[in-house]
Amino acid sequence: MSSGERMEGASASQAQPAASNPTQRLTDLGQRRTYLGMAWRRFRRNKLAMLGLAVLVLMIVFALCAGLISQYITGFALSDQNLMNAYQPIGAENHLLGTDDVGRDVATRLAYGARVSLGVAGLAVLGAMTIGVTVGLMAGYHGGVIDSLAMRFVDIMLSIPTLFLLLLVATLFTLNALALAGLIAAVAWVTLSRLIRGEVIAAKNRDYVDAARVVGAKNTRIIFRHILPNVAPVVIVWASLAVPALILTEASLSFLGLGIQPPDPSWGNMLSNAQRVWSRSTSLVVLPGLAIYITVFAINLMGNGLRDALDPRLTD
């Protein structure tokens, strides 16, 4: 426990000299020890995870403020071109991170790219969570035919390498950002649903579920009020580790030219664009990849911290 909390406890006991001190302090401690409070305390102690969280928050701010950055800091719009001013190096006048092959401001485009990368991955995770949790809860709780069908389907999806499946779909359809997020979600939910199913099967035989049933709770109530909160940590940890993975998926697809289409910037398609001209400029290749790497690294650090904090059992 940090020294700050001990001091807090001490000042509390000073403020109430009349109360019997030891007992009072014990109940104080007991009240503050909620599950989330303890998890947050464990998380806060993990410096790397806190660093990851800080970087992620910065990236989100960077992405959300893309418009403001373009207007007030870089002074260039997303697609302002100037062929006379192409291939400016990092730190050039007016262009903090240089310009690309048609003279567009790289910093501005990175900010808008962050919006796409984080947005698509975030939406995809939300979608995958919705499907995965629903299927996992249903399959695990009801068992039987629903379970067999769902899990055979999961087996099938796991047998086709994700990228090949995405390649097949991207061949057939041209996708905008929203459709891309949906597509990635449609592939990503399977691992979560299997995870949830296992947790639910373990949870549904616990005493508290029997107790709930004895007092007459209906299935929906048992699933959503008793089982779901107990599998929530698994979902949160999965999501925090899925976001970086899906950022990489989106970036891979966009890099291959099958995801976000130019001129809309995404970190992935900025990189593939830079690859064509990299004999002219190295920084164009380095910067978008570095942005992806830093973001993914930060969220992974945070996710690991979250896993340790939320459920020590999940640590290997």
């Binding site: 970086p244 891979s252 990189l271 290749v285 380095v286 990849g289 992806i292 790497y293 690294f297």
Partner: peptide
């Protein structure tokens, strides 16, 4: 955390 394609380019 490394993006494969970026690492390849590097």
């Amino acid at each position: 955390s490394m993006p494969t394609f970026w690492f390849a380019l590097m």
